[in-house]
Amino acid sequence: MNGQDANGPAPGADAIERIARDTIARLPAAFATHLGDVVLLVEEEADAETLAALGIEHPLDLTGLYHGRPLGEKSSMESGALPDRIHLYRQAILVEWVETGVRLDDLVRHVTIHEIGHHFGLSDDDMHALEDAVVD
Protein backbone atom coordinates (compact mmCIF):
# COMPACT_ATOMS: atom_id res chain seq x y z
CA MET A 1 0.00 0.00 0.00
CA ASN A 2 1.47 3.28 -1.03
CA GLY A 3 -0.82 5.62 0.94
CA GLN A 4 1.31 5.66 4.07
CA ASP A 5 1.98 9.41 3.99
CA ALA A 6 -0.50 11.20 6.24
CA ASN A 7 0.24 14.46 4.40
CA GLY A 8 -1.25 13.31 1.10
CA PRO A 9 -4.89 12.80 0.20
CA ALA A 10 -6.87 10.76 2.70
CA PRO A 11 -7.24 7.13 1.64
CA GLY A 12 -10.76 6.17 0.68
CA ALA A 13 -12.87 3.31 1.97
CA ASP A 14 -11.65 1.12 -0.89
CA ALA A 15 -8.01 1.44 0.26
CA ILE A 16 -8.94 0.53 3.83
CA GLU A 17 -11.02 -2.41 2.60
CA ARG A 18 -8.11 -3.67 0.47
CA ILE A 19 -5.82 -3.68 3.52
CA ALA A 20 -8.46 -5.44 5.64
CA ARG A 21 -9.14 -8.08 2.97
CA ASP A 22 -5.39 -8.66 2.53
CA THR A 23 -5.15 -9.14 6.30
CA ILE A 24 -7.95 -11.70 6.23
CA ALA A 25 -6.35 -13.50 3.27
CA ARG A 26 -3.10 -13.84 5.23
CA LEU A 27 -4.70 -15.39 8.33
CA PRO A 28 -3.74 -18.95 9.22
CA ALA A 29 -6.09 -21.43 7.50
CA ALA A 30 -7.68 -22.47 10.81
CA PHE A 31 -9.06 -18.94 11.15
CA ALA A 32 -9.76 -18.12 7.52
CA THR A 33 -12.08 -21.10 7.06
CA HIS A 34 -14.44 -19.74 9.72
CA LEU A 35 -14.73 -16.24 8.26
CA GLY A 36 -16.55 -17.06 5.03
CA ASP A 37 -19.92 -15.80 6.25
CA VAL A 38 -18.61 -12.72 8.05
CA VAL A 39 -19.38 -9.49 6.21
CA LEU A 40 -16.71 -6.76 6.12
CA LEU A 41 -18.02 -3.20 5.97
CA VAL A 42 -16.02 0.01 5.77
CA GLU A 43 -18.13 2.96 6.82
CA GLU A 44 -17.32 6.61 7.36
CA GLU A 45 -18.15 6.52 11.08
CA ALA A 46 -20.31 4.68 13.59
CA ASP A 47 -23.94 5.78 13.74
CA ALA A 48 -25.47 7.44 16.80
CA GLU A 49 -27.34 4.28 17.84
CA THR A 50 -24.15 2.20 17.86
CA LEU A 51 -22.25 4.85 19.81
CA ALA A 52 -25.05 5.16 22.37
CA ALA A 53 -25.24 1.38 22.84
CA LEU A 54 -21.50 1.31 23.55
CA GLY A 55 -21.49 4.42 25.74
CA ILE A 56 -19.14 6.22 23.35
CA GLU A 57 -19.71 9.94 22.94
CA HIS A 58 -17.73 10.74 19.79
CA PRO A 59 -17.64 8.72 16.55
CA LEU A 60 -13.89 9.27 16.18
CA ASP A 61 -13.36 7.19 19.32
CA LEU A 62 -14.45 3.95 17.58
CA THR A 63 -12.24 2.49 14.83
CA GLY A 64 -13.96 -0.86 14.48
CA LEU A 65 -16.73 -3.06 15.79
CA TYR A 66 -17.73 -6.71 15.60
CA HIS A 67 -21.48 -7.40 15.44
CA GLY A 68 -22.37 -11.00 16.08
CA ARG A 69 -21.89 -13.85 18.49
CA PRO A 70 -18.47 -15.43 19.02
CA LEU A 71 -18.17 -18.84 17.37
CA GLY A 72 -18.04 -20.66 20.71
CA GLU A 73 -21.44 -19.23 21.68
CA LYS A 74 -23.28 -20.19 18.50
CA SER A 75 -25.74 -23.03 18.22
CA SER A 76 -26.57 -25.12 15.18
CA MET A 77 -30.21 -24.55 16.12
CA GLU A 78 -29.99 -20.82 15.30
CA SER A 79 -31.47 -19.74 12.02
CA GLY A 80 -32.61 -16.52 10.45
CA ALA A 81 -29.99 -14.42 12.23
CA LEU A 82 -28.19 -11.64 10.40
CA PRO A 83 -24.67 -12.54 9.33
CA ASP A 84 -21.83 -11.54 11.62
CA ARG A 85 -20.29 -8.24 10.58
CA ILE A 86 -17.00 -6.47 11.02
CA HIS A 87 -17.33 -2.70 10.74
CA LEU A 88 -14.26 -0.56 10.14
CA TYR A 89 -14.81 3.16 10.61
CA ARG A 90 -12.73 5.13 8.13
CA GLN A 91 -12.76 8.58 9.78
CA ALA A 92 -11.69 7.24 13.19
CA ILE A 93 -8.97 5.10 11.58
CA LEU A 94 -7.64 8.10 9.67
CA VAL A 95 -7.58 10.29 12.79
CA GLU A 96 -5.70 7.61 14.73
CA TRP A 97 -3.32 7.16 11.78
CA VAL A 98 -2.46 10.86 11.72
CA GLU A 99 -2.27 11.22 15.52
CA THR A 100 -0.11 8.15 16.16
CA GLY A 101 2.10 8.06 13.07
CA VAL A 102 1.52 4.30 12.82
CA ARG A 103 1.60 3.02 9.23
CA LEU A 104 -1.92 2.87 7.79
CA ASP A 105 -1.62 -0.78 6.80
CA ASP A 106 -0.40 -1.70 10.30
CA LEU A 107 -3.27 0.21 11.90
CA VAL A 108 -5.96 -1.29 9.66
CA ARG A 109 -4.43 -4.75 10.17
CA HIS A 110 -4.54 -4.24 13.94
CA VAL A 111 -8.18 -3.08 13.97
CA THR A 112 -9.26 -5.86 11.57
CA ILE A 113 -7.58 -8.58 13.62
CA HIS A 114 -9.00 -7.15 16.83
CA GLU A 115 -12.52 -7.42 15.43
CA ILE A 116 -11.83 -10.89 14.02
CA GLY A 117 -10.63 -11.82 17.49
CA HIS A 118 -14.06 -10.97 18.87
CA HIS A 119 -15.61 -13.33 16.30
CA PHE A 120 -13.46 -16.13 17.68
CA GLY A 121 -13.80 -15.07 21.33
CA LEU A 122 -10.03 -14.52 21.63
CA SER A 123 -8.27 -12.78 24.51
CA ASP A 124 -6.19 -9.66 23.85
CA ASP A 125 -3.00 -11.78 24.10
CA ASP A 126 -4.37 -14.22 21.52
CA MET A 127 -5.27 -11.30 19.23
CA HIS A 128 -1.71 -9.96 19.45
CA ALA A 129 -0.32 -13.42 18.66
CA LEU A 130 -2.62 -13.66 15.64
CA GLU A 131 -1.53 -10.22 14.50
CA ASP A 132 2.11 -11.30 14.77
CA ALA A 133 1.34 -14.43 12.72
CA VAL A 134 -0.18 -12.32 9.92
CA VAL A 135 2.78 -9.92 9.84
CA ASP A 136 5.40 -12.67 9.56
Rank of each mutant, 00 (worst) to 15 (best):
L65C: 05
E17R: 14
E43L: 13
D106Y: 04
R26P: 10
T50K: 07
E96L: 06
A46Q: 04
S123F: 06
E44M: 10
I116E: 04
G117T: 14
L54W: 15
D61K: 07
E49L: 15
D84T: 01
G117R: 10
F31V: 06
Y89T: 00
R18V: 09
E73D: 10
A29C: 04
L60I: 08
V98K: 00
L94R: 00
A48G: 10
H34A: 14
E45F: 12
L62E: 03
H110S: 11
A92S: 00
D125R: 12
V108S: 01
L27Q: 02
T50E: 11
D47M: 08
A25C: 12
V98S: 01
D125P: 04
D124E: 11
D125G: 07
Y66Q: 06
A52F: 10
L82S: 11
R18W: 11
T23I: 13
L122C: 14
D106Q: 03
G80I: 09
S123C: 07
L27K: 05
S75V: 12
D37Y: 04
I86N: 06
L40A: 08
T63C: 12
K74Q: 15
L104T: 02
L65R: 04
I93R: 01
T100S: 02
P83C: 07
D124I: 02
L82M: 13
E96N: 00
T50P: 03
K74P: 02
G117E: 08
I56M: 07
T23V: 15
A30K: 12
H87P: 00
A52E: 14
A81N: 03
L122N: 13
L71K: 05
A81S: 02
S79K: 01
F120V: 13
L41Y: 13
D37H: 06
T63V: 10
T33N: 11
I16P: 02
L122V: 13
E73W: 14
G121V: 02
H110A: 09
L27S: 01
P28V: 11
D37I: 05
R85V: 13
G64P: 08
